[in-house]
Design a protein around this nucleic acid. Structure first.
Length: 582
DNA sequence: GCCGTTTTCGGCCCGACTGTTTTCAGTCG
């Protein structure tokens, strides 16, 4: 068995044990093992030969033993014993929001259902309400949650889809005679959620390659096939398409194949690529664009309506890159729920070439996340001032900040006199997500209007694949941000990507500044910034639209200073765009 | 399950809030 197959087995074991009510930490141990394996870049069999299996984190006696069982025999006693105890449909039920493994066990035992479809039918037949611990209201909620789960499961968050695609791409690269494999489709375009993985393969033997693809681990069936492609159902829930490139047959060159496989279909058609078909040597996408008299259009822009016409008239907009960043403005430390000290975060920021880093730990009412009391925040302000005596000469300025909760009434969870002493105030919603659009809009608008709030963090609260954005009138949010000179965030944590590209584009078009932040809870978390940059590029953002590209003096000027500012932010922005920021 | 010891078992998942099931499971970062 290879790494991915063994990881899948450990995940399956965890799923079954969890529904059987096994100890939380035991379940977690199997999940951790699976995650560790998926992160490896060396086969477990090699690690075993080198005798270093026990050095992997979370690999104790039991998990090492089972790993060796899988390597030598393809299974292990525990798996054989429990594999038929819990049907796959029941495992899926436990992924429905609001349905814990315990509730799943109660419902399946009482109703005899073993798939989500059967559970849904039972709820519609008003049978769930008779189960002990449930009622009519909970039954209605269950139906809502099943519908929500269906919507959320149709796609994978980009970061998970990319990891999946890379695993499959590696497997296809190992096929005999494979010349080249590229991840295309929605992933290459940087879509925040992905409905299918698309691999383009250059091989002189397409038929055997497609047959081999159908045998890859995690593949559960064939949805569609032809002589040049196969679309497969996978355990991940989204289909995998493997398309073979066959020079001289369907496409005249790799450049075309790459372009068509990347899509979108609408974009590809709007290019009218037929006009360039007879041109020789279209080895790259850039060659194809050039043959049509166009500059290279980055994949992230290929879902933008009318982009071909826009590019013909105005050229390709200068899109922001990770290299443009001079700092980050929403990060955590051990001051609340981060894993790294402020000093460690500062060193990491220096290593990434940053000029500034804001520490924004949670505010007092978020006790779950170890939110800071007044005394602790005051101590942190002093600590940062002390650290700056060391770090400013080394080129990094630490900014004192807070991620303050936006309370239910829109008030900010920190005293004004403290907020006034901070360089950066991020305000975010962390509680009571299910309010009406009117209430949530009023709540956030009030927070934006707060004179000391600089940035609204993760403005819609979505968690990709898990929680939909809360109801809020984004137009009112943007209008208020414009009026008050408040910055809106693209939270780059890969499970958030909030604002979305669509919302971020609307923010830019309104002339409101954005900030992209990793919301890091560790040193490594800082690098999640790249996901946010992908979103920003899809939104067509340039460096001048994002305050993280400003030098420190310009940044300070862009933060609203006092209140009300009214339209000053717009003037600041145009001045910045015209001069220093490129 | 793993881990880290004051070496052989207890901590690890914190704890307030929410909704609605009337007594607690699910949720949040």
């Amino acid at each position: 068995m290879n790494n991915a197959e063994i990881a899948a087995r450990f995940t399956r074991i965890a799923d079954i044990l969890e529904i059987q009510g096994e100890n939380f930490f035991k379940v977690k141990a199997y999940r951790n093992a699976a995650a560790t394996i998926l992160d490896l870049d060396e086969p477990l069999s090699d690690l075993d030969k080198r005798g270093v299996l026990t050095e992997l984190p979370g690999f104790g006696e039991a998990i090492v033993g089972k790993t060796r069982d899988f390597l030598s025999t393809g299974t292990t006693a525990l798996y054989e014993r429990i594999k038929n105890d819990v049907p796959e449909g029941v495992v899926q039920m436990a992924r429905i929001p609001g349905l814990s493994p315990k509730s799943v066990k109660t419902l399946t035992d009482a109703l005899g259902v073993s798939t989500v479809d059967e559970l849904e039918a039972a709820a519609r037949a008003e049978k769930v309400r008779d189960v002990a611990g449930f009622g009519a209201a909970k039954e209605a909620k269950l139906l809502e949650n099943i519908a929500r789960w269906r919507r959320l499961s149709e796609t994978l968050p980009l970061y998970l889809a990319l990891a999946l695609a890379n695993r499959y791409a590696d497997a296809v690269r190992a096929f005999p005679e494979t010349q080249r494999v590229e991840v295309c489709g929605e992933i290459r375009r940087g879509c925040e959620t992905v409905s299918g993985v698309y691999l383009l393969v250059d091989t002189p033997t397409p038929i055997p390659a497609l047959q081999a693809a159908a045998q890859l681990p995690g593949v559960t069936g064939t949805l569609d096939k032809s002589s040049s492609h196969i679309t497969l159902a996978t355990e991940a829930g989204v289909p995998l398409t493997v398309a073979t490139y066959d020079a001289g047959l369907r496409w005249s060159a790799w450049g075309f194949a790459h372009l068509a496989a990347t899509g979108s279909a609408e974009f590809y058609e709007s290019l009218e690529p037929g006009n360039a078909t007879n041109t020789v040597s279209l080895a790259t996408e850039a060659d194809v664009f050039a043959a049509m008299g166009l500059p290279f259009i980055p994949p992230e822009l290929r879902d933008t309506p009318g982009i071909v016409q826009t590019v013909r008239e105005n050229g390709v907009p200068m899109l922001i890159t990770v290299a443009d960043f001079r700092g980050q403005l929403h990060e955590h430390s051990t001051g609340s729920d981060g894993a790294a000290s402020i000093r460690e975060m500062a060193e990491a920021a220096l290593m990434r070439g940053y000029e500034y880093l804001a520490i924004t730990d949670h505010s007092r009412s978020l006790t779950i996340a170890n939110g800071m009391t007044r005394a602790l925040l005051e101590a942190q302000i002093t600590e940062i001032a002390d650290l700056n005596r060391e770090f400013v000469p080394r080129g990094l300025t630490l900014l004192s900040g807070i991620e303050a909760d936006i309370l239910q009434d829109g008030a900010i969870d920190c005293e004004d006199d403290l907020l006034a002493r901070l360089d950066i105030v991020v305000a975010s919603v962390h509680r009571r997500y299910s309010e009406s659009a009117e209430a949530m809009t009023a709540r956030i608008v009030r927070a934006i209007e707060h004179p000391h709030v600089h940035i609204i963090g993760h403005p819609t609260g979505r968690l990709l694949g898990r929680r939909e954005p809360f109801a809020v009138d984004m137009g009112a949010v943007i209008d208020t941000a414009k009026r008050t000179g408040t910055i809106l965030e693209i939270n780059a944590a890969p499970e958030r990507l909030d604002l979305s590209a669509e919302n971020a584009r609307a923010v830019k078009e309104a002339g409101v500044l954005l900030s992209i932040n990793a919301d890091a809870h560790s040193v490594a978390g800082l690098d999640s910034i790249a996901w946010g940059v992908t979103v920003a590029r899809r939104a067509g953002l340039s460096p001048g639209d994002v305050v993280n590209t400003f030098d420190l003096a310009t940044l300070r000027a862009a933060l609203k200073n006092g209140y009300p500012i009214i339209t000053a932010s717009v003037n600041v922005r145009s001045a910045l765009t015209d001069t220093a920021i490129t």
